[in-house]
Amino acid sequence: MPQKRKTSTRHRRRRKNQNQPIYIIIAVVAVLLVGLFSFQQYQKQKQEDATEQVKEEKNEFIKKVAPEAVALGHEYGVLPSITIGQAILESDWGNSTLASKYNNYFGIKGTDPNNTVVLETKEYTNGQWQTINGRFRSYSDFRESMKDHAKLLVNGTSWNSSQYQQVIGSQDYIEAAVALQTDGYATDPGYTTKIIRLIQKYDLKKYDEGIK
């Protein structure tokens, strides 16, 4: 009867050793995949945390300026939604240099060197954006800036006391936002659209209740 050929111990060890590189490669790939997945999860969580932080900062800014905007609305007749919307847009949520260092939330300009600061700004002129130096009011408190903004809309400019009467006379934020553009508050051709979007996105209309 024919006998089966026995595999030598040395031959079996050789086969085992030949398979080891495959196991090592599989293990390395598995580790890399787990690491990649963990990194992706970390990045995703980091992005979500950053988004939540930005959202919270924006909510805090609205909470900060809303009470003063409502108070000024009752005193001067300026819709709080317009005041808050402009504060957000003009100051970049309070993060611009003019806002963070000089408490000017509305880009209000001045002429007195004792209470103004010269900063670079962009204005839309002759169909294009241009960078210029502007002299802006400096305030010790953001509430002073908000009050000056309300008084500017009510009293107009030094060359036109009725300049913003359409804004003051508006019955809703859309009408007021359009009036800001037509009355020349800003040179940005998209100013009205930006204000309206901010008011709608953050439900700022609710602050107008009881003002008009």
Rank of each mutant, 00 (worst) to 15 (best):
N59C: 02
E123Y: 02
N114W: 00
N115F: 10
L89S: 05
G35H: 05
A66R: 08
S91T: 02
E75V: 13
L72F: 03
E48C: 01
Y102E: 03
A71H: 12
I62W: 00
K44Q: 04
V78N: 09
S91Q: 15
T116S: 09
K122I: 15
S38A: 15
V118Y: 09
G73N: 04
G127T: 00
T116H: 10
Q47C: 00
E57D: 14
V54A: 04
N59Q: 15
Y105R: 12
T121Q: 04
N114P: 01
A87G: 06
Y76V: 01
T121M: 01
Q40Y: 10
N59R: 15
P80K: 06
I132P: 02
G107A: 12
T131E: 13
S38G: 06
Q86V: 09
N114C: 01
E48D: 07
P113Q: 05
H74Q: 14
T83N: 03
V78E: 03
N103V: 04
T125C: 00
E56D: 14
T116N: 11
F37N: 11
S81Y: 15
Q40F: 11
L79A: 11
N115H: 14
K44W: 04
L79Q: 12
K64Y: 06
V78P: 00
F106H: 08
T97S: 14
E52A: 15
H74S: 14
Q47E: 15
K101W: 07
S38P: 00
Q86N: 14
D112E: 08
I62C: 05
I108A: 12
A66K: 10
Q47F: 12
I62Q: 08
I62E: 03
T131F: 09
V54F: 07
Y42F: 14
A50E: 10
N133A: 09
Q41P: 00
G110E: 07
A71L: 14
K109Y: 13
I84E: 12
N114Y: 01
V117P: 08
V78Q: 04
W129H: 06
A69P: 03
V54G: 00
L119T: 00
N133M: 13
T131G: 09
V117A: 06
H74M: 10
V54E: 09
E90F: 08
V117K: 04
